[in-house]
Protein backbone atom coordinates (compact mmCIF):
# COMPACT_ATOMS: atom_id res chain seq x y z
CA UNK A 1 0.00 0.00 0.00
CA UNK A 2 2.67 2.47 0.95
CA UNK A 3 4.37 1.94 -2.40
CA UNK A 4 1.56 3.48 -4.44
CA UNK A 5 1.91 7.00 -5.71
CA UNK A 6 1.08 10.03 -3.61
CA UNK A 7 -2.08 11.88 -4.68
CA UNK A 8 -2.39 14.54 -1.99
CA UNK A 9 0.49 15.87 0.01
CA UNK A 10 0.25 18.68 2.54
CA UNK A 11 3.33 20.23 4.12
CA UNK A 12 2.74 22.61 7.01
CA UNK A 13 -0.52 23.91 5.50
CA UNK A 14 -1.99 26.95 7.24
CA UNK A 15 -5.28 28.72 6.80
CA UNK A 16 -6.57 31.85 8.47
CA UNK A 17 -9.94 33.55 8.55
CA UNK A 18 -9.15 37.09 9.60
CA UNK A 19 -7.02 36.74 12.72
CA UNK A 20 -8.35 33.26 13.48
CA UNK A 21 -6.07 30.43 12.43
CA UNK A 22 -8.14 27.39 11.46
CA UNK A 23 -5.34 25.21 10.08
CA UNK A 24 -2.15 25.34 12.10
CA UNK A 25 0.38 23.49 10.02
CA UNK A 26 -1.11 20.31 8.54
CA UNK A 27 1.20 17.56 7.27
CA UNK A 28 -0.76 14.96 5.39
CA UNK A 29 -0.36 12.30 2.70
CA UNK A 30 -2.98 10.35 0.75
CA UNK A 31 -1.98 7.70 -1.79
CA UNK A 32 -3.61 6.43 -4.97
CA UNK A 33 -6.42 3.97 -4.25
CA UNK A 34 -6.46 4.74 -0.55
CA UNK A 35 -9.46 5.74 1.52
CA UNK A 36 -8.65 8.29 4.20
CA UNK A 37 -11.24 9.12 6.81
CA UNK A 38 -10.81 12.39 8.61
CA UNK A 39 -12.30 12.32 12.07
CA UNK A 40 -12.53 14.93 14.77
CA UNK A 41 -14.87 17.27 16.59
CA UNK A 42 -16.60 20.13 14.76
CA UNK A 43 -14.50 23.23 14.27
CA UNK A 44 -11.28 21.24 14.11
CA UNK A 45 -10.54 22.31 10.52
CA UNK A 46 -11.54 19.05 8.79
CA UNK A 47 -13.85 20.57 6.20
CA UNK A 48 -11.60 23.57 5.66
CA UNK A 49 -8.68 21.28 4.88
CA UNK A 50 -10.83 19.31 2.43
CA UNK A 51 -11.93 22.52 0.70
CA UNK A 52 -8.32 23.63 0.36
CA UNK A 53 -7.53 20.47 -1.60
CA UNK A 54 -9.78 21.47 -4.52
CA UNK A 55 -9.05 25.16 -4.09
CA UNK A 56 -12.48 26.22 -2.87
CA UNK A 57 -10.37 27.82 -0.15
CA UNK A 58 -6.87 29.20 -0.63
CA UNK A 59 -4.17 28.37 1.85
CA UNK A 60 -2.20 31.04 3.68
CA UNK A 61 0.96 29.08 4.34
CA UNK A 62 2.76 25.81 3.65
CA UNK A 63 2.52 23.72 0.50
CA UNK A 64 -0.32 21.59 -0.81
CA UNK A 65 0.20 19.24 -3.74
CA UNK A 66 -2.43 17.32 -5.68
CA UNK A 67 -1.12 14.88 -8.32
CA UNK A 68 2.29 16.48 -7.89
CA UNK A 69 0.97 19.96 -8.76
CA UNK A 70 1.02 22.77 -6.25
CA UNK A 71 -2.65 23.71 -5.69
CA UNK A 72 -3.41 27.05 -7.31
CA UNK A 73 -0.07 27.35 -9.14
CA UNK A 74 1.73 26.19 -12.22
CA UNK A 75 5.47 25.72 -12.07
CA UNK A 76 7.52 26.72 -15.04
CA UNK A 77 11.23 27.60 -15.35
CA UNK A 78 11.64 27.60 -11.61
CA UNK A 79 8.84 30.11 -11.11
CA UNK A 80 5.37 29.67 -9.75
CA UNK A 81 2.56 31.16 -11.77
CA UNK A 82 -0.83 31.69 -10.23
CA UNK A 83 -3.38 29.65 -12.19
CA UNK A 84 -5.88 31.29 -14.49
CA UNK A 85 -9.52 30.61 -13.68
CA UNK A 86 -9.70 28.27 -16.64
CA UNK A 87 -6.73 26.25 -15.39
CA UNK A 88 -8.18 26.10 -11.88
CA UNK A 89 -11.40 24.76 -13.38
CA UNK A 90 -9.48 22.10 -15.32
CA UNK A 91 -7.64 20.97 -12.19
CA UNK A 92 -10.85 20.91 -10.18
CA UNK A 93 -12.55 18.68 -12.72
CA UNK A 94 -10.07 15.95 -11.75
CA UNK A 95 -11.08 16.22 -8.09
CA UNK A 96 -14.64 15.27 -7.24
CA UNK A 97 -16.45 16.72 -4.29
CA UNK A 98 -19.53 15.48 -2.46
CA UNK A 99 -21.18 17.95 -0.13
CA UNK A 100 -23.10 17.62 3.09
CA UNK A 101 -26.08 19.41 1.51
CA UNK A 102 -25.84 17.38 -1.77
CA UNK A 103 -25.97 20.57 -3.87
CA UNK A 104 -27.62 18.99 -6.86
CA UNK A 105 -28.55 21.68 -9.39
CA UNK A 106 -32.12 22.27 -8.36
CA UNK A 107 -33.37 23.61 -11.71
CA UNK A 108 -32.42 20.47 -13.62
CA UNK A 109 -33.58 16.89 -13.68
CA UNK A 110 -31.28 14.30 -12.13
CA UNK A 111 -30.23 13.19 -15.57
CA UNK A 112 -29.39 16.72 -16.67
CA UNK A 113 -27.39 17.11 -13.47
CA UNK A 114 -25.20 14.28 -14.72
CA UNK A 115 -25.24 15.23 -18.40
CA UNK A 116 -24.47 18.95 -18.30
CA UNK A 117 -21.10 18.68 -16.50
CA UNK A 118 -19.95 16.09 -19.02
CA UNK A 119 -20.98 18.27 -21.96
CA UNK A 120 -19.55 21.51 -20.55
CA UNK A 121 -16.45 20.22 -18.80
CA UNK A 122 -15.52 17.03 -20.64
CA UNK A 123 -16.84 18.22 -24.04
CA UNK A 124 -18.74 14.99 -24.58
CA UNK A 125 -21.62 14.75 -27.01
CA UNK A 126 -25.08 14.81 -25.46
CA UNK A 127 -25.73 11.23 -26.56
CA UNK A 128 -22.48 9.95 -25.08
CA UNK A 129 -23.10 11.89 -21.86
CA UNK A 130 -26.62 10.50 -21.53
CA UNK A 131 -25.39 6.97 -21.99
CA UNK A 132 -22.74 7.45 -19.31
CA UNK A 133 -25.25 9.16 -17.00
CA UNK A 134 -27.55 6.16 -17.25
CA UNK A 135 -24.72 3.74 -16.44
CA UNK A 136 -23.80 5.81 -13.37
CA UNK A 137 -27.39 6.15 -12.19
CA UNK A 138 -27.73 2.39 -12.40
CA UNK A 139 -24.54 2.02 -10.41
CA UNK A 140 -25.96 4.09 -7.53
CA UNK A 141 -29.39 2.43 -7.78
CA UNK A 142 -31.26 5.34 -9.33
CA UNK A 143 -31.77 4.07 -12.87
CA UNK A 144 -35.43 5.06 -12.85
CA UNK A 145 -34.95 8.52 -11.32
CA UNK A 146 -33.34 10.33 -14.25
CA UNK A 147 -36.39 12.42 -14.97
CA UNK A 148 -37.04 13.43 -11.38
CA UNK A 149 -36.03 16.80 -10.00
CA UNK A 150 -33.73 16.84 -6.96
CA UNK A 151 -36.41 18.01 -4.54
CA UNK A 152 -38.55 15.02 -5.48
CA UNK A 153 -35.95 12.61 -4.09
CA UNK A 154 -35.16 11.64 -0.53
CA UNK A 155 -31.93 12.91 1.00
CA UNK A 156 -30.28 9.53 0.52
CA UNK A 157 -31.28 9.43 -3.13
CA UNK A 158 -30.07 12.97 -3.67
CA UNK A 159 -26.70 12.18 -2.15
CA UNK A 160 -26.35 9.06 -4.30
CA UNK A 161 -27.22 11.14 -7.35
CA UNK A 162 -24.62 13.72 -6.27
CA UNK A 163 -22.00 10.97 -6.07
CA UNK A 164 -22.99 9.81 -9.56
CA UNK A 165 -22.70 13.39 -10.84
CA UNK A 166 -19.20 13.64 -9.40
CA UNK A 167 -18.23 10.38 -11.09
CA UNK A 168 -19.56 11.68 -14.41
CA UNK A 169 -16.50 13.86 -14.97
CA UNK A 170 -14.08 11.03 -14.15
CA UNK A 171 -12.24 12.39 -11.10
CA UNK A 172 -8.97 10.83 -9.91
CA UNK A 173 -9.84 11.66 -6.34
CA UNK A 174 -13.12 12.30 -4.55
CA UNK A 175 -13.51 14.47 -1.46
CA UNK A 176 -16.51 13.79 0.77
CA UNK A 177 -17.49 16.59 3.14
CA UNK A 178 -19.66 14.95 5.82
CA UNK A 179 -21.73 13.17 3.17
CA UNK A 180 -24.20 11.60 5.59
CA UNK A 181 -24.50 14.33 8.23
CA UNK A 182 -27.60 15.92 6.71
CA UNK A 183 -29.42 12.61 6.28
CA UNK A 184 -32.15 11.01 8.33
CA UNK A 185 -30.60 8.08 10.22
CA UNK A 186 -32.39 5.42 8.20
CA UNK A 187 -30.97 6.84 4.94
CA UNK A 188 -27.32 6.84 5.98
CA UNK A 189 -26.57 3.25 5.06
CA UNK A 190 -27.68 3.51 1.43
CA UNK A 191 -25.15 6.30 0.89
CA UNK A 192 -22.40 4.47 2.78
CA UNK A 193 -23.07 1.39 0.62
CA UNK A 194 -22.42 3.41 -2.53
CA UNK A 195 -19.23 4.81 -1.00
CA UNK A 196 -18.14 1.32 0.01
CA UNK A 197 -18.55 0.12 -3.58
CA UNK A 198 -16.60 3.10 -4.78
CA UNK A 199 -13.77 2.34 -2.38
CA UNK A 200 -13.76 -1.28 -3.48
CA UNK A 201 -13.42 -0.14 -7.10
CA UNK A 202 -10.09 1.48 -6.18
CA UNK A 203 -11.15 5.13 -6.06
CA UNK A 204 -8.95 7.45 -4.02
CA UNK A 205 -11.20 8.99 -1.39
CA UNK A 206 -10.82 11.47 1.44
CA UNK A 207 -13.86 11.40 3.67
CA UNK A 208 -14.66 13.82 6.45
CA UNK A 209 -17.16 11.85 8.49
CA UNK A 210 -18.60 11.04 11.87
CA UNK A 211 -19.35 7.45 10.85
CA UNK A 212 -16.79 5.56 12.91
CA UNK A 213 -18.13 2.21 11.71
CA UNK A 214 -17.57 3.16 8.09
CA UNK A 215 -14.08 4.41 8.91
CA UNK A 216 -13.21 1.18 10.71
CA UNK A 217 -14.42 -0.98 7.87
CA UNK A 218 -13.36 0.95 4.76
CA UNK A 219 -10.55 3.35 5.62
CA UNK A 220 -6.90 2.63 4.92
CA UNK A 221 -5.90 5.43 7.22
CA UNK A 222 -7.62 7.63 9.74
CA UNK A 223 -6.53 11.22 10.19
CA UNK A 224 -7.60 12.81 13.43
CA UNK A 225 -8.03 16.62 13.38
CA UNK A 226 -8.34 18.69 16.49
CA UNK A 227 -8.00 22.41 17.03
CA UNK A 228 -6.63 23.04 13.54
CA UNK A 229 -3.96 20.34 13.80
CA UNK A 230 -3.62 16.84 12.47
CA UNK A 231 -2.91 15.08 15.74
CA UNK A 232 -2.77 11.49 14.54
CA UNK A 233 -2.65 9.56 11.34
CA UNK A 234 -2.84 5.78 11.56
CA UNK A 235 -4.56 2.67 10.18
CA UNK A 236 -8.07 2.32 11.64
CA UNK A 237 -7.35 -0.67 13.87
CA UNK A 238 -4.44 1.08 15.49
CA UNK A 239 -6.22 4.42 15.83
CA UNK A 240 -9.49 3.03 17.15
CA UNK A 241 -7.98 0.60 19.63
CA UNK A 242 -4.90 2.42 20.84
CA UNK A 243 -4.87 6.11 19.97
CA UNK A 244 -1.67 7.80 20.98
CA UNK A 245 -3.03 11.19 22.10
CA UNK A 246 -5.32 12.06 24.97
CA UNK A 247 -7.47 14.18 22.71
CA UNK A 248 -8.10 11.25 20.38
CA UNK A 249 -8.86 9.00 23.35
CA UNK A 250 -11.38 11.55 24.67
CA UNK A 251 -12.94 11.95 21.24
CA UNK A 252 -13.32 8.21 20.76
CA UNK A 253 -14.75 7.77 24.24
CA UNK A 254 -17.41 10.36 23.42
CA UNK A 255 -18.38 9.05 19.99
CA UNK A 256 -18.19 5.35 20.78
CA UNK A 257 -20.11 5.45 24.05
Amino acid sequence: MSQSEIVVEAIDVQKKYGDQTVLKGIDFVARRGEVTCILGASGGGKSTFLRCINHLETIDGGELFVDGHLVGYRESNGKLYELKERETADRRSRIGMVFQQFNLFSHMSIQDNLVQPQVLVKKRSAAEAKERAQVLLERVGLADKGRAYPRELSGGQQQRAAIARTLAVDPQLILFDEPTSALDPELVSEVLDVMRDLAASGMTMIVVTHEIGFAREVADQIAFFDGGKLLESAPPQQFLTSPSTDRARNFLRRVLS
Partner: peptide
Protein backbone atom coordinates in the same frame (compact mmCIF):
# COMPACT_ATOMS: atom_id res chain seq x y z
CA UNK B 1 -28.73 31.55 -5.20
CA UNK B 2 -27.34 29.23 -2.56
CA UNK B 3 -23.54 29.21 -2.33
CA UNK B 4 -23.58 25.42 -2.47
CA UNK B 5 -24.85 25.53 -6.08
CA UNK B 6 -21.81 27.55 -7.14
CA UNK B 7 -19.42 25.39 -5.18
CA UNK B 8 -20.85 22.22 -6.68
CA UNK B 9 -20.42 23.61 -10.20
CA UNK B 10 -16.92 24.91 -9.43
CA UNK B 11 -15.86 21.55 -8.03
CA UNK B 12 -17.10 19.82 -11.18
CA UNK B 13 -14.79 22.06 -13.21
CA UNK B 14 -17.24 24.68 -14.51
CA UNK B 15 -15.51 27.86 -15.57
CA UNK B 16 -16.82 31.09 -14.08
CA UNK B 17 -18.75 32.07 -17.21
CA UNK B 18 -20.30 28.59 -17.53
CA UNK B 19 -21.24 28.65 -13.88
CA UNK B 20 -22.99 31.99 -14.29
CA UNK B 21 -24.78 31.04 -17.49
CA UNK B 22 -25.82 27.47 -16.75
CA UNK B 23 -26.27 27.39 -12.98
CA UNK B 24 -26.70 30.82 -11.43
CA UNK B 25 -28.73 32.80 -13.97
CA UNK B 26 -31.30 30.07 -14.76
CA UNK B 27 -32.01 29.68 -11.06
Amino acid sequence: IDKGQREAAASLGYRPAQLMRHIVLPQ
